[in-house]
Nucleic acid binder design. Structure first.
Lengths: 139, 139
DNA sequence: TATTTGCACTTGCAAAATGCAAGCAAATTT
DNA sequence: AAATTTGCTTGCATTTTGCAAGTGCAAATA
């Protein structure tokens, strides 16, 4: 159990501080649903994160134990980023944000497709996806 | 349905942009669960938001139709902030963030108490709370 | 073996956002 | 009439961001 001492004492405040901004959550989302796992993957992603910000977010995510850095099996020049259990536990949060977003915004088709199953049976979707993600990080 | 055109084209990105940072979500949380409804309430709240930031967040929340400004029934000197349906729809997001936070952080007792019911039956809790909040904004 | 390419970052700098303290006008209380 | 409360605004120093350009290492190519 972590205690973060900041100017803002806890509530969700401290847990939201972990993210810094939207970028961290988007990185996790992209890892969960769009199979991104390298620096280059994130850089190329639709949202257009700046390279220095990406570096700082990845570092923060690692420090907060939401991701792990591994040597990429394909090549030593590559880094493979992997989710931790702590990050996987964010799945319900990410799903709910997307469901809300779908209600009030135009979201891209790829995301809509993803949400189709989630809307049919939310609990089932979360259970299934969690199991898949766990399997991924186990290997 | 809104379309936000920013450097980052959509996903949750645009919906997260609405919040700007943690403060907006905390304001909504405080309105939902801790009966805060005036500028002074938010200023005094535990997290310690700066006054200019509070002003800018309230403005953004109003522009994004998550809150409404009304004359306070007690006095014309006061402003009463009220949640919109769009904000109430964020309840599941806020609940999930808190449940995650409780798992990995030390959260204050007042929040823990709140979460007790949510953990017993999440769907029921969300349904009941939504109904309550709707009643509040109706009056 | 030499060289070019790809990948994961770092660095420098201008622009924007933040935090703090102080100020301010209108409404209420004394 | 004076003091206080409420909801902000303003100025300014500090921090964070975004963009462009580099750097260092590994692997592919010549």
């Amino acid at each position: 159990m972590e205690t973060i001492k900041k100017r803002s004492e806890c509530p969700i405040s401290c847990s939201l501080d972990i993210f810094g901004d939207k970028w961290s959550l988007l990185i996790i989302r992209d890892m969960m649903f769009f199979n991104k796992s390298t620096y280059g993957d994130f850089l190329k992603s639709a949202e257009g994160i700046a390279t220095n910000i990406l570096a700082s977010r990845l570092q923060a995510l690692e420090e907060n134990k939401l991701i792990e850095k591994l040597v990429h099996p394909e090549s030593k020049a590559k880094v493979l980023y992997k989710l931790t259990q702590k990050a996987i536990d964010l799945l319900p949060v990410i799903v709910e944000i997307h469901l809300w977003a779908e209600k009030y915004f135009d979201i891209p088709t790829e995301v809509k497709i993803l949400l189709k199953d989630a809307k049919k049976g939310k609990d089932e979707f979360i259970k299934t996806t969690t199991r898949q993600l766990k399997k991924q990080i186990a290997s």
